[in-house]
């Protein structure tokens, strides 16, 4: 799903929650491509990839009572790239692909490093934004083709009051 906050305004840095949201929806080929240079670096696992279920909750109309929409499979992991003091990368991704969770966590760890942030933003986050926007446009176009325009036929003669009097 494409979210409103995926469109960053000009000169606005992406905060961590937003890039984590992007990474959790990034397809595996894009992650592999952008992080191929990091494949050899040593990882310190805090939590190896593990797959579980999350109960997704919704609200009718966005404001009503909370209800359980259904369960969804999520894989999560946490790791450090490099030494003991380096930043911890965390990832939660949909599905059961451990490799995808690992790469998303690596990307999260590297994005916290100010020296590497901008390069990776261009190499990974921007393509992911484009991918999600494209996906959203395709979905909207598919929905658009089935759109039906309803209209109401207005009464043409006189006002209702006049009609009642007669």
């Amino acid at each position: 799903m494409f979210h409103a906050f995926d469109n960053t305004g000009p000169n606005r840095p992406t905060p961590r929650p937003e890039w984590m949201a992007l990474l959790s929806r990034a397809p595996l080929p894009l992650l592999e491509q952008a992080l191929s240079a990091q494949a050899g670096t040593s990882l310190q696992w805090l939590r190896k990839p593990e797959t579980g279920l999350y109960m997704v909750q919704g609200r009718a109309g966005g404001t009503g009572q909370r209800f359980n929409l259904g369960e969804m499979t999520v894989t999560r992991c946490a790791l450090r790239v490099g030494g003991e003091d380096s930043a911890v990368g965390v990832a939660y991704v949909m599905g059961r692909n451990h490799r995808q969770a690992q790469l998303a966590a690596v990307a999260d760890a590297l994005l916290q490093d100010p020296a590497r942030h901008d390069a990776l933003d261009g190499a990974l986050l921007q393509p992911v934004r484009q991918h999600l926007a494209l996906q959203q446009a395709q979905r909207a176009a598919r929905a658009q083709s089935t759109q039906v325009d309803f209209f109401t036929v207005a009464r043409e003669s006189g006002t209702p009051d006049e009609g009642d009097d007669e």
């Binding site: 310190q44 805090l46 190896k48 003991e84 930043a87 911890v88």
Partner: peptide, 13 residues
């Protein structure tokens, strides 16, 4: 806090 956390079991099982 997460930044302070060290790894746990080498092999959890």
């Amino acid at each position: 806090d997460l930044q302070q956390v060290r790894p746990g079991f080498h092999d959890a099982a």
